[in-house]
Design a protein around this nucleic acid. Structure first.
Length: 196
DNA sequence: CAGTGGATGCTCT
DNA sequence: GAGCATCCACTGT
């Protein structure tokens, strides 16, 4: 077990969502002793028809308009929680969806919560990741400190691919999905046409 | 491996 | 009432 990486500061999140999403790749995220390294994340902004914040605050997405590093968690398809971190300055409604991590800590707890044995599928997808980490709507609106969430700085170099986002029906061309090249822990592979 | 369809219930118009 | 930032099982190559 390696030492915990130094935490990123609030200024890290006080930047545009695509910049934050790109820089989050390779960073360590953990909560309650479970976690890993971010290998896939998507950016969502206010002037972005695919974003919940696009039409202004609603009861669901209100926390997107909070200060940088606020946690935004919502339920999708009535089943799965999705985990975001707010970025840019307060009130902009920008956030980054964490879509996949390479699990490194608390593997047994995550396997138990997921009910699967295949480590590749533990955190490969926004719904799988929240289930593995035990993240629910109870964290919505909290800051990282209050939630017990740790975000550590990137320690090793990563090559990041910028590709179109997944599972949305608007702004499907915007390349705001960031993927760690070569990782086998992503939710879906990088499109062949965008592979060197 | 690719494509399809069902589950499941909250959110917003 | 329609749509949804998903996942899983199942089909057919």
């Amino acid at each position: 077990m390696s030492a915990r990486a130094r935490a990123v500061g609030r200024a890290f999140f006080d930047r545009p969502p695509d910049v934050v999403a790109e820089d989050l790749i390779g960073c360590e995220v953990s909560i309650g002793g479970a976690g890993g390294v971010v290998v896939e994340a998507e950016a969502y902004g206010q002037d972005d028809p695919a974003s919940h914040s696009h039409r202004g605050p609603t009861p669901r997405c209100q926390s997107m308009f909070g200060p940088p590093a606020t946690i935004y968690v919502y339920l999708i398809h009535g089943i799965h929680w999705c985990f975001n971190l707010v970025c840019e300055e307060e009130g902009r409604g920008a956030a980054v969806l964490i879509r996949a991590i390479e699990p490194t800590h608390g593997l047994d707890a995550m396997r138990a919560r997921r009910g699967v044995d295949d480590d590749r599928l533990l955190c490969a997808g926004p719904g799988r990741l929240t289930q593995a980490l035990g993240i629910t709507g109870a964290l919505d609106g909290l800051g990282t400190r209050a939630a017990g969430l740790h975000v550590g700085r990137r320690r090793d170099a990563v090559e990041v691919a910028r590709v179109p986002r997944i599972g949305i029906s608007a702004a499907t061309d915007l390349p705001w999905r960031m993927v760690a090249r070569g990782s086998r822990f992503v939710s879906r592979p990088i499109p062949r046409s965008l592979t060197p």
